[in-house]
Design a protein around this nucleic acid. Structure first.
Length: 276
DNA sequence: GGCCAGGGCAAAG
DNA sequence: CTTTGCCATGGC
């Protein structure tokens, strides 16, 4: 299946720090593991993306995963020309999409993320997957590993997590696995619910009951795991931009309903904008 | 080798 | 309610 869409750029999406299991294996060639699903993709030309899977799988799984029903041009149009920094950020990041990732995966990943760089996060996610995820024997002969389930992680003790080099986050992982495996934290139920049943604030509060989960991590899970794209996680990069470019206050209200997409543009531009 | 990373927490002001 | 020190480890 080939998709023509100027608002789908695999490279930028992979580099935007939301999906830690999407890798560029060769220029323009990508491998993605979502839960226990494997997908190969290619960028054929700017705005031209090939999904290497049966059409049926594309329509049933990946069309939704890549959020291809959402109109990102509409959001871009809401940015006033007077905001030169954001205009530049949007232009630079055009093609980033907010993927519809698995809530449990995002919960664990962003617990691991605190006070670490993106390459370091990727590494420990892969460590967890290779040690505790199910093996997948792909058609290309390679062995891939699914993201470990809550059940798989709930039997691991704190010391064993420490051996995965997750440092002081080891007890956080234990608690997260226990909460999810026991059903005391039902991420799947929250994911199925409408915003009326589970408002953003309620999900954040519930997630924050887990130790190691504060406003930043909870909002990342909300944005990337529950696709509540109004969520606006504030990390060191975003805070720095708000501080230096917006005098300490960014007008999030203006982007009500899709602030999380704007946040991604700002984040990506701040990290990658003036490199190379 | 020092600095910083998609923070959170508890103690203290 | 707002600061401050600490937490392990890796990448650059």
């Amino acid at each position: 299946m080939i998709v023509q869409n100027d608002y789908l750029d695999l490279h930028k999406t992979a580099e935007s720090g939301q999906c830690f299991r999407m890798r560029e294996t060769a220029p323009g060639c990508f491998t993605l593991i979502a839960g226990s699903r494997l997908l190969h993709l290619r960028t054929l030309a700017p705005g031209k993306t090939e999904f290497l899977c049966p059409d049926e799988e594309f329509w049933q799984v990946w069309h939704r995963y890549f959020d291809l029903d959402t109109n990102y041009a509409f959001m871009e149009a809401r940015v006033p020309a007077s905001d030169t920094y954001l205009s530049a950020a949007v232009s630079f990041g055009r093609g980033i999409r907010i993927l519809r990732q698995d809530p449990w995966e995002m919960f664990v990943t962003f617990i691991l993320s605190q006070r670490r760089s993106i390459p370091a996060i990727k590494k420990s996610v892969e460590t967890l997957c290779t040690r505790y995820g199910e093996q997948m024997h792909a058609a290309d002969g390679e062995t891939y590993y699914a993201f470990p389930t809550a059940e798989a992680l709930s039997g691991i003790c704190e010391q064993e997590f420490r051996d995965c080099a997750v440092g002081y986050r080891a007890p956080y992982l234990c608690e997260a696995a226990s909460l999810a495996a026991s059903g005391r934290l039902d991420l799947a139920a929250m994911a199925k619910a409408s915003p009326a049943e589970w408002p953003d604030e309620a999900i954040v509060m519930t997630l924050e009951c887990a130790s190691g989960v504060g406003p930043k991590v909870a909002n990342c899970v909300l944005l990337f795991g529950f696709h509540r794209i109004d969520a606006f996680p504030k990390d060191v990069w975003i805070n720095r931009v708000i501080d230096t470019e917006y005098n300490g206050h960014f007008p999030v209200e203006r982007y009500h309903g899709f602030a999380g997409v704007i946040q991604q543009y700002l984040f990506y531009y701040a990290r990658n904008g003036q490199k190379k």
